[in-house]
C-alpha cells in the first residue's frame, strides 16, 4: 500500500492543482520545486481550468498491474489551455474517435485501487470530450 504518496498528491490529482511561478508567472503542472521557465523557486498553488486539447494519444489493451481492469483505455498527452502538457487517460469516449486537437475537459475519476480491491481507491484527473454546447 502506498497510502502516504497518494495522500500527498491528492490536491494535484483531484483538482489539477499545479503552480504559478511567483517570479515569471509561468503556469506549472505537474508542480515542481524549481520553475522550468526561470529557475526560480516554484511554490504558489494554481488551479488549472481543466480545459485543453489532445496533443497525442494511444490505446492500451494490456494494462500494467493496477490497470488490468481498466483496459482497454485511451491515454493521451493533453495540452492545457494554460500551456503545460499533462499525461492522462481519456474517459467517457463512448466509442467516439479521438483525434489530435480534440477539445477535452478535466473530470475527476477513479484511477485505480491501491493494491487489490481491499486497498483504497485512488481518484484523479482524466479528460473527456468537451460536453455539447449548453443550450
Amino acid at each position: 500500500m502506498e497510502i502516504p504518496r497518494h495522500w500527498r498528491l491528492k490536491q494535484q490529482r483531484y483538482a489539477l492543482v499545479g503552480e504559478v511561478c511567483p517570479h515569471c508567472e509561468g503556469k506549472i503542472f505537474p508542480p515542481r520545486d524549481v520553475c522550468p521557465h526561470c529557475s526560480g523557486e516554484a511554490k504558489t498553488p494554481y488551479a488549472f481550468s481543466g480545459r485543453g486539447e489532445v496533443y497525442s494519444y494511444t490505446r492500451i489493451s494490456d494494462g500494467p498491474a493496477g490497470f488490468e481492469e481498466s483496459a482497454p483505455y485511451t491515454i493521451a498527452l493533453v495540452k492545457l489551455e494554460e500551456g503545460p502538457l499533462v499525461t492522462a487517460q481519456l474517459t467517457d469516449l463512448g466509442g467516439q474517435p479521438v483525434d489530435i486537437g480534440m477539445p477535452v475537459e478535466m473530470v475527476t475519476r477513479r484511477i485505480r485501487s491501491d493494491g487489490d480491491e481491499r486497498g483504497m481507491i485512488v481518484y484523479g484527473y482524466k479528460f473527456r470530450p468537451v460536453m455539447a454546447a449548453q443550450a
Partner: peptide, 14 residues
C-alpha cells in the same frame, strides 16, 4: 514518472 505518468496508466511502449 511514477507520480504523473505511471499513475495515469502509461507504459514505456505507450
Amino acid at each position: 514518472d511514477s507520480d504523473y505518468e505511471l499513475m495515469a496508466g502509461l507504459t514505456p511502449v505507450a
